[in-house]
C-alpha cells in the first residue's frame, strides 16, 4: 500500500540560497495532492527531496511515520514521473516498464504479468517492442506512468507530467491519471503550474510561492477562501481584481471577475457595487469579459449578454457581498 507522507518543517538550501523555507505538509495515505506555484518556487526541489534525490538541509520527511533521513533514493521505494519522462532510450517499452521490477529481483513470471497488466491498463499493449524514440509524446508519457505503477510505490511523484502534451490530450490524460491513482489507492504528489489541472485532479492543493507554503486545502477552499492575496491572485482566471477599499486605507478588496456582473434589478440590498466606463469588450465563448474603467483603474467583470453595452458606455457592476474578499494591505493576509 501507499504511505502517508509527512513533510515536517523541511528546509532546503542550495549553497547560500534558501529554496524551501520550512515546509509543513501532512499528506494522507492515498491522497492526491497537487503542488501549485509559479516557476522557480521550489516545486521540483520539494519532489526531489521527498524522493531522496536531494538532501534536505533541515527538517524531516516521514513515510508512515518512519524518518527517511538515512535512506537513499534507492531504498525509499518512490516512483517519479519526470517532466521529460526520462525513458531509457536504449530499452524497449517493455524493458523500460520492467526495469524497476528487475532491480527488485522479482521472478520472471511476475514481471511478465505486471508488465502485461500495466500495458493493458495504459493502452500500450501494441507498443511493447518499440523504442522510446519511435513513440509520440503522449505514448511516452504513458510509458513513464507505466514504469511508475508496476510496483507498489510508497508514493507516486509527478513533475509536470502533462506539460509537454497538447491541450486535448492533457485534458484527457488528467482524468486517466486521476482514475488510475484512485483505483490503485496511490498517494500522489503532483506538480503543476496549471491551476485548472490542480483544481480538477486534486484532493488537496498546496500553493507555494518562493519556497513558502501559502495554503494547503481542498480545491474549492483554495478558490473560495484564499488564505492571502498571493493565493487569491494566483488561483482563478482571469485574475482577481484588487481595489482599494473606499472606507479603509489598510484594506484591499478582492473581486473575482466571475462574481462581478452588470447590476440588475434582482441585486439585493447588501450587494457590493461599482460604477465605471466600459473600455473593452472581449467575447470569450460562454460569456463576455468587460474591462471597465473605475476611477482610473481597470476592473474586469463578466457579462452573459451585452445587448445594451458598448465601448464607452457607462455601466454599474455589482457582486454579492459574500464574494467580496478583504486583504490586509501590509501583510496580504485575508481578513
Amino acid at each position: 500500500m501507499s504511505a502517508a507522507v509527512t513533510i515536517d518543517n523541511v528546509v532546503k538550501d542550495y549553497g547560500p540560497v534558501r529554496v524551501l523555507h520550512g515546509l509543513q505538509l501532512d499528506i494522507r495515505e492515498g491522497e492526491f495532492v497537487s503542488l501549485l506555484g509559479p516557476s522557480g518556487c521550489g516545486k521540483s526541489t520539494l519532489l526531489y527531496c521527498v524522493a531522496g534525490l536531494e538532501q534536505i538541509s533541515s527538517g524531516r520527511i516521514l513515510f508512515d511515520g518512519r524518518d527517511m533521513a538515512a535512506l537513499g533514493s534507492r531504498e525509499r521505494n518512490i516512483a517519479l514521473v519526470f517532466q521529460d519522462y526520462a525513458l531509457y532510450p536504449h530499452m524497449t517499452v517493455r524493458e523500460n516498464i520492467a526495469f524497476p521490477l528487475r532491480r527488485l529481483k522479482v521472478d520472471r513470471k511476475t514481471i511478465e504479468g505486471q508488465v502485461a497488466w500495466a500495458a493493458e491498463t495504459l493502452g500500450l499493449a501494441a507498443l511493447l517492442e518499440r523504442m522510446p524514440s519511435d513513440l509520440s509524446g503522449g505514448q511516452r508519457q504513458r510509458v513513464a506512468v507505466g514504469r511508475a505503477i508496476v510496483r507498489n510505490p510508497a508514493a507516486l511523484l509527478m513533475d509536470e507530467p502533462l506539460s509537454n502534451l497538447d491541450a486535448a490530450l492533457r485534458v484527457h490524460m488528467r482524468t486517466e491519471i486521476k482514475r488510475l491513482a484512485s483505483d490503485l489507492g496511490l498517494t500522489v504528489l503532483f506538480v503543476t503550474h496549471d491551476q485548472e489541472e490542480a483544481m480538477v485532479m486534486s484532493d488537496r492543493i498546496a500553493v507555494l510561492s518562493q519556497g513558502h507554503l501559502q495554503q494547503f486545502a481542498a480545491p474549492m477552499d483554495v478558490y473560495r477562501n484564499p488564505a492571502n492575496r498571493f493565493v487569491a491572485e494566483f488561483i482563478g482566471s482571469p485574475k482577481m481584481n484588487l481595489l482599494p477599499s473606499p472606507d479603509r486605507a489598510d484594506i484591499l478588496l478582492g473581486l473575482r471577475p466571475h462574481d462581478l456582473t452588470p447590476a440588475g434589478p434582482q441585486d439585493g440590498e447588501d450587494a457590493f457595487s461599482l460604477a465605471g466606463t466600459i473600455a473593452l469588450i472581449e467575447p470569450a465563448g460562454p460569456q463576455y469579459f468587460l474591462d471597465v474603467l473605475v476611477g482610473g483603474q481597470l476592473v474586469r467583470a463578466t457579462a452573459s449578454e451585452i445587448d445594451n453595452l458598448s465601448n464607452g458606455s457607462e455601466v454599474r457592476l455589482s457582486a454579492p457581498a459574500h464574494r467580496v474578499y478583504r486583504f490586509d494591505v501590509a501583510t496580504g493576509d485575508a481578513l
Partner: peptide, 25 residues
C-alpha cells in the same frame, strides 16, 4: 539528461548497475 540517472536511482539501480545499464548504453 540528468533525469535518466535520477529515474534509475528511484527504480532501485545502484551506481554499478547504472553505469552498465544507463551510462554505457
Amino acid at each position: 539528461p540528468a533525469s535518466l540517472h535520477k529515474a534509475a536511482m528511484l527504480d532501485g539501480a545502484g551506481p554499478v548497475t547504472r553505469f552498465f545499464r544507463i551510462t554505457l548504453p
